[in-house]
Amino acid sequence: MADLSVKIAGVEFSNPVIAASGTFGNGECYTDLYPISKLGGISCKGMTIEPKQGNPPPRIAETYSGILNSVGLQNIGVRGFIDYYLPTLKQDGNVIIANVSGATIEDYVRAAELLDQSDVDMIELNISCPNVKAGGATWGISCDGAASVTREVRKATKKPLIVKLTPNVTDITEIAKAVESEGADAISMINTLLGMRIDIRTRRPILRNNMGGLSGPAVFPVAVRMVRQCYKAVSLPIIGMGGISTWEDAVEIMLAGASAVQMGTAIFTDPYSPLKVIDGLAGYMDKNGIKSLSEIVGQCQEW
């Protein structure tokens, strides 16, 4: 069997398939189907320094080839995560990524300080959540905002730092450059695209929060394009996500420039899809004589 391992910011992953934040809980929900150690890693449910209630329902709407969500970062807080979920998660041996959000820079810093003392392997800064009024994407839509959060969190932790970017900007490469210059170790992209659906009978938005984040196969070409742009603009490793549901999608976004992938919405359609992608990648490597996935990263031959 092919060697699927990848290394990002000094962290070794047994394979490049990571469950995306907010789609896999904290690893506890799918254990009836398979051990989560089969995945390369898990990006845990987005957490904030204090517990958060989230937005009122409905929080999900189906779209053509995708979904809108407006969960609004419901979570039990960083301390709850560390005490309640992390010990079990660490037993499974794969890479544990803590996904962190905040309303203020202080929130991010306090969360990072606590996580710095914990067993998590990496921290993923979510400066791209479209579903909260304060913080979230407001940090990720300007170079200054993205740079200052990254700078302050960088001072607060020695853990490898991934910054998760929002696609809801004019030029994502400018944001990528800003976080690179402030000490990010990697970027993950793309978070969801802001969208909206309206019930034509009631004339009400389907989501109680009116708007929400679009994910699923519908956004995949946008993700590929943005990964490609950032691959050319910065030298940071990129974790690609946005609508990946097959191994072919994974290969495609890696050719664009991603060193690893996250899968989310596809898990709702088929909980086994991450394992199918892992198997498919192994078959692809064997068939094409690829010894390491690093051989294909960014190897798209543009016209």
């Binding site: 907010g22 789609t23 896999f24 809980g25 506890e28 929900c29 799918y30 449910k45 209630q53 989230g54 009122p56 329902p57 409905p58 929080r59 999900i60 709407a61 979904i67 969500n69 969960v71 419901q74 389907i206 898990i267 709702f268 909980p271």
Partner: peptide, 26 residues
Amino acid sequence: EQRMGCGVGACVVCSCLTVRNGKEMY
């Protein structure tokens, strides 16, 4: 009943407001 995503507790979209131990929570 609520609009649902994963069905297994992972995605937290199918919330309903409840009171547990005197505290309101989804």
